[in-house]
Nucleic acid binder design. Structure first.
Lengths: 152, 152
RNA sequence: UGACACCCAAUUAG
DNA sequence: CTAATTGGGTGTCA
């Protein structure tokens, strides 16, 4: 099975402010093909969104791209968003077991979570968290992609 | 009779966590004296406590201060703690009428409730609830006092 | 089951 | 410094 490593980041200009808050997600995708590494940039833009929605949107777009032609990959998805990483590793299983409810009421961005679950199925995914702005070069590269995408 | 208005708030760092959870209570006390308003800050610290205990401790300390020299005041006590406000307005009368028992077993912080009852007697108290973090400037000021007091 | 409060963590911004 | 997006928890009561 081939392996892909993804470094992703998100952005949302004016997050939480009034008016439109445009967002972007960026990902550096590296797929190992016959010993060589294919590199590819991905970015997504949304005109009015939130930081967390963009983390989900970036992952969804990434897995949609990796799933072309029914490919099944081993994927290491690296993000500085605990919302995304802990969400996929811990919260989603817990939510599913409890009927997609959380303590204080309903789950935010539920359709995005379920879309991500759908599009990543068939792959063998490891969700890895790295601290943001800690010098990780690929995380910073993804950050640049995300901010540029947010600015349209 | 003179009137005092008190804006109070509480804090407990790591509330419910393991280990010591230090707490603070803060109050902005305004006493109307001959048409002028005397302002005064009060704060209390406890090295290992809970949020609700600090709400009670702050009220007890406030009334102790207001009771010097046997003064009797009309006091408006403003807090965002439903535990404190509903407690004094509804639960305490009910507990007293039923021998200081409650449905699910014993009453927590019973000594604090009774101490507060004691120290506020002699004053004419109105317990007023305001929603926290809703832009009330004096509530936010009391919040700052409480957090600072919690940090010692 | 509901309500209020107190936190802990990560990220995104201004 | 400020604030929003989101998750996990406890302290307490009815």
């Amino acid at each position: 099975m081939q392996t892909a490593v993804v470094h992703a980041d998100e952005s949302c200009l004016g997050n939480g402010r009034e008016g439109a808050t445009p967002g972007g997600a960026g990902a550096l995708i590296e797929v190992e093909v016959k010993g060589a590494i294919e590199r590819r940039d991905l970015y997504v833009h949304a005109p009015d969104t939130t930081n967390n929605r963009m983390a989900l949107a970036g992952a969804i777009a990434t897995f949609a791209l990796l799933s072309t032609k029914g490919r099944r990959l081993r994927v290491v998805y690296v993000s500085d968003s605990e919302y995304l990483v802990k969400g996929m590793r811990e919260w989603v299983p817990s939510w599913r077991a409890r009927g997609w409810k959380r303590k204080g009421g309903s789950i935010e961005n539920l359709e995005l979570w379920q879309a991500l679950l759908q599009v990543q199925s068939g792959h063998e995914v490891t969700w890895r968290w790295v601290r943001g702005h800690a010098g990780d070069a690929k995380n910073e590269y993804a950050d640049h992609l995300a901010v540029r995408a947010a600015k349209d």
